[in-house]
Design a protein around this nucleic acid. Structure first.
Length: 951
RNA sequence: AGGCGGUUAGCUCAGUUGGUUAGAGCGCGUCGUUGACAUCGACGAGGUCGGCAGUUCGAAUCUGCUACUGCCUACCA
């Protein structure tokens, strides 16, 4: 083995070997255990969040595989409709100056397929670098032919069950991307805006109670007034009650619109009068339905003012009675320009009452970044409420459990008030909706055009046209758990691996994905008794990885960390180039460059996959935000190095040596029995913490055990035995065997977390450890063997550690070098102390660098010494030649002072009647013992202090 | 406006059912390299657990209020 851990050298070959040998494919004899990877965007690249979640999934899968279960980690990618289409649109714009319309639908989608082929393996290559043990043989894509079949089937069946419908509805329209988007894709932002108070003249000479011939409405979007269909007031509102049923003469367009009564109008808010624009506002749309007001659509798909309004009745049918006239000066005007113009025109007409500053929330498209316009369009919807019922119940009944549990609230609150889901998108990249239209406007839904003709007896000469729209990406990803396994066919894979065990994902897509997956799966997947199957039993929600100061990582902030840079390292100049290249706003680049140079003055050094993964596990607590910390990455790189060097030491002492693998008598030292016992404990801890999805704790357990017990103490304790030429062969054999076997167990324990270093070390020691096999990946995971627990050995070693630490304390305080040999005196020994002393003389001499250890008899006078207590036993180091009386007095006084405080605290507690009578007896007993110990220590130290003072 | 989190050492975070002197890593200080490891070792300093009140023999932990902070949902004529 190399002297220093070099991750690059070992990671390279192992992954390839594992994959080639087919270790990732399901093969275990035990129960099935399935995880579906949340499919990343096919043309995307791996970010920290992926690395985090995928590392967690890999640990769980590797753990279950080692437990002998039939594990499937299903891998695949998502076509990611809008995101991918936008990438390619930008690309052709930049490279060829063309838009998708220059290409036309077919040629453009071909272009996307090309791009997918070109860049699609980027993300899978990165997954491999992470060590992800996914089943590559069955990789899926949400637009592969099989998946398309599942999507079609679901659409057709939902439509048949009346759970999908088409209708003219108000939807969130993105005027830049020219598509409808769902509520979830709208990002609400607070902005400073204005509220315009506009005068709407009353028709027919009517007057308000105050004698005015107009009423005042307030609006934040004056341009929509062109589509006003009425003005609402509250039926209880004394100010306007009398006007209900009268008309308004809408300014600028001179349309007569009624004053209606509706609860939506709040007497306390604004002026109490609300303009109602059913075609351009969600609330107004509801009012329109209640009050039977028409929908007057005045905007184009670009968000410009139309030349002529389109009008519909509140039930969506065409209305041909209303005047569709729009004044010419607004035709084709961009919506925000129209806003200005209309305000100006109101002002000019003397109808602008007032402008107020107003903070409001404005909807933006999360992809396009432009203001979303509620617009009337024909769209397909999923009726969500009926699907939500069983999905809610599954979580209520605990069939699906969220980890951490608090996320169930989020799920419930959304699901219990779920709105219909707009699933059609006016894009070109995605699953085309399986619906066809004839020239008469009839709609047919079926799996194919042939099926439509067949089912409806439509002859071949009647033209049918398929719907142009595609489905929301999340519609197909909602089928991920069963679509990937071969549904709608009743495949063996589906039978074996569904329902899956755990879904690992971020809270940001609970609504987008998790909830919809539950709804879809429970509707389509039934068990043998016809009961709905859940898609997964646990939903493990991870936190979001943020940068070191808690900010979300984003390209425009220039704080994105690439997991592969953590693994391989990157030069500063390359990092700067990477972060500042392709910036939309060049002035940002300067800022980002500065920031990057400050944060990483020397670039980023290579840390290796194992260190990255271990850092991620250690951060995987239950919090919602996880702040990335380079220092922790360094710490775990050092941990890798520690393991490496320990292995190096073990190998030096066991290679070609007798480790008992060929038989022979074995005698175990106290240290051997101790570390074996401690190993059992850590095995139990790790098992529990993995079961609880607390990988942060599991990784901490292993870190502590490996570094602070195995390396810091056990390896040191092995030296006196191995270096003692006179030690009996069976003793050396026992220590060598323990040394190598515990390390072998460590490699198995740590394998799910650190796949590479564990494999490399395991391969190097497996012969000496007496195990056979091709890879640690398929070895059994260590489990607690109660027969190997050794309570007494653990206590004895604690005593030994206390003794040694005591001596080290003295050395540090008196400035005695670690290599200077010391003699010590001991007194006040219990029988246990006596036994331990006899048994461990060799360890003590070696680890504490002691020559003589002399036991003083009762009352025997000691020379002037410095003292440490090990339990009640006193350890004295004669100070002749080392003496610093004042220093020692100060030290002891401080100790005594501390003890005094303790004593008075315990005494106070124990003299409290209520404590004695209320606290559990064992707690009281414990306190009593503590007091006793403190008192005796106090006494000993006081004696010592007086003795020194007396000198 | 409603909901859910967070607030513990200089920094990043653990702390399971209330019960030793509240822990870890990093950072900091002192000392130390001839035999696994300076990507290391030994020792140490550092916290009235956001604030107030309450329940209790006992509160970082339970309850109420409050401050700051983050997110989610809804509304904003």
């Amino acid at each position: 083995m190399e002297k220093t851990f070099n991750p690059h050298a070992i990671e390279r070959s192992w992954y390839q070997t594992w994959e080639e040998k087919g270790y990732f494919a399901p093969s275990g004899e035990g129960n099935s255990y399935t995880i579906m990877i949340p499919p990343p965007n096919v043309t995307g690249s791996l970010h920290m969040g992926h690395a985090f979640q995928d590392s967690i999934m890999d640990a769980l899968i590797r753990y279950q595989r080692m437990k002998g279960n039939n594990t499937l980690w299903q891998v695949g990618t998502d076509h990611a409709g809008i995101a991918t289409q936008m990438v390619v649109e930008r690309k052709i714009q930049a490279e060829e100056g063309k838009t998708r319309h220059d290409y036309g639908r077919e040629a453009f989608t071909d272009k996307i397929w090309e791009w997918k082929e070109e860049s699609g393996d980027n993300i899978t290559r990165q997954l491999r670098r992470l060590g992800a043990s996914v089943d590559w043989d069955n990789e899926r894509f949400t637009m592969d032919p099989g998946f398309y079949k599942a999507v079609q089937e679901v659409f057709v069946r939902l439509h048949k069950d009346d759970l999908i419908y088409r209708g003219k509805r108000l939807v969130n329209w993105d005027p830049k991307l020219h598509t409808a988007i769902s509520d979830l894709e709208v990002e609400n932002k607070d902005v400073n805006g204005h509220m315009w108070h506009l005068r709407y003249p009353l028709a027919d000479g009517e007057k308000t109670s105050e004698g005015k011939d107009y009423i005042v409405v307030a609006t934040t979007r004056p341009e929509t007034m062109l589509g006003d269909a009425g003005v609402a007031v509250n039926a209880e509102d004394e100010r306007y009650k009398a006007l209900i049923g009268k008309d308004i003469l809408l300014p600028l367009v001179n349309r007569r619109i009624p004053i209606v009564a509706d609860e939506h109008a709040d007497m306390e808010k604004g002026t109490g009068c609300v303009k109602i624009t059913p075609a351009h506002d969600f609330n107004d749309n509801e009012v329109g339905k209640r009050c039977n007001l028409p929908m007057i659509s005045i905007m184009t798909l670009n968000g410009d003012i139309r030349d002529e309004a389109e009008t519909f009745n509140s039930d969506g049918t065409v209305n041909s009675e209303i005047d569709t006239h729009i004044p010419e000066q607004y035709h084709g005007m961009e919506r925000f320009a129209a806003r200005k113009q209309i305000v100006a025109d109101f002002d000019a007409a003397g109808l602008l009452e007032e402008i107020k500053d107003h903070d409001l929330t404005v909807p933006y498209g999360d992809r396009s970044g432009v203001v979303i316009e509620p617009l009337l369009t024909d769209q397909w919807f999923v009726r969500a409420a009926p699907l939500a019922g069983p999905a809610i119940k599954a979580v209520e009944d605990g069939e699906i459990q969220f980890v951490p549990k608090q996320y169930e609230n989020m799920y419930f609150s959304w699901m219990r008030d779920i709105q219909d889901w707009c699933i059609s998108r006016q894009l070109w990249w995605g699953h085309r909706i399986p619906a066809w239209y004839d020239d008469e406007g009839n709609i047919y839904v079926a799996r194919s055009e042939e099926e439509v003709r067949e089912q409806n007896n439509i002859p071949a000469d009647v033209a049918l046209r398929q719907d142009d729209d595609v489905l929301d990406t999340w519609f197909s990803s909602a089928l991920w758990t069963f679509g990937t396994l071969g549904w709608p066919e009743a495949t063996e894979r589906l039978k074996t691996f569904h329902p899956t065990d755990v879904l690992v994902t971020g809270f940001d897509i609970i609504f987008f994905w998790v909830a919809r997956m539950i709804m879809m799966t429970m509707h389509f997947m039934k068990d043998d008794e016809g009961k709905p199957q859940v898609p997964f039993k646990h939903v493990y929600i991870t936190g979001l990885i943020r940068d070191e100061s808690g900010d979300k990582m984003s390209k425009s902030k220039g704080n994105v960390l690439d997991p592969l840079d953590m693994i391989d390292g990157i030069e500063l100049e390359d990092l700067v180039k990477k972060r500042c290249g392709n910036m939309m706003q060049p002035q940002l680049a300067t800022k980002i460059e500065k920031r990057t140079r400050k944060a990483f003055p020397e670039g980023i050094s290579a840390h290796g996959t194992d260190a990255l993964r271990y850092t991620l596990y250690s951060l995987a607590s239950t919090g919602r935000d996880i702040n990335w910390d380079m220092k922790r990455l360094e710490g775990y790189r050092n941990f890798c190095n520690k393991i490496w060097n320990a292995a190096n030491y073990v190998q030096m002492n066991t290679k070609d040596e007798d480790c008992g693998q060929n038989g022979g008598d074995i005698e175990l030292t106290l240290a051997d029995r101790w570390i074996t016992s401690r190993l059992q404990r850590v095995e139990a801890q790790v098992e529990k913490n993995i079961a609880d999805f607390r990988l942060d704790h599991a990784s901490q357990n292993l870190y502590d055990f490996i570094w602070n017990e195995y390396c810091a103490w056990y390896l040191e304790l092995s030296k006196p035995v191995l270096w003692d030429e006179n030690a009996p062969a069976e003793l050396k054999r026992g220590t060598r065997r323990t040394l190598v076997r515990v390390l072998e167990a460590i490699t198995r324990l740590i394998h799910p977390f650190m796949p590479y270093i564990s494999e490399e070390v395991w391969q190097n020691i497996k012969v000496e450890a007496g195990v056979e096999g091709e890879t640690v990946m398929t070895q059994s995971y260590p489990v607690l063997d109660e027969g190997k627990l050794d309570e007494l050995a653990e206590q004895d070693i604690e005593w030994l550690k206390g003794f040694i630490t005591g001596i080290r304390n003295i050395r540090a305080e008196l400035n005695i070098g670690p290599n200077k040999e010391l003699n010590v005196l001991i007194r006040n020994l219990s029988p246990d102390d006596q036994r331990r002393l006899t048994d461990n003389t060799a360890f003590l001499q070696s680890l504490a660098k002691l020559t003589d250890i002399t036991v003083l008899s009762e009352g025997e006078k000691a020379p002037m010494s410095t003292t440490q207590l090990v339990g009640k036993m006193e350890v004295l180091v004669p100070m002749a030649g080392l003496i610093d009386k004042e220093k020692e007095v100060a030290r002891l006084s401080k100790e005594v002072e501390k003890l005094n405080k303790e004593v008075s605290r315990f005494e106070g507690k124990l003299s409290n009647e209520k404590f004695i009578s209320n606290a559990k007896p064992d707690v009281v007993e414990k306190e009593r013992n503590k007091l006793k110990d403190a008192l005796s220590a106090q006494e000993r130290l006081n004696e010592q202090l007086n003795a020194i003072k007396a000198l």
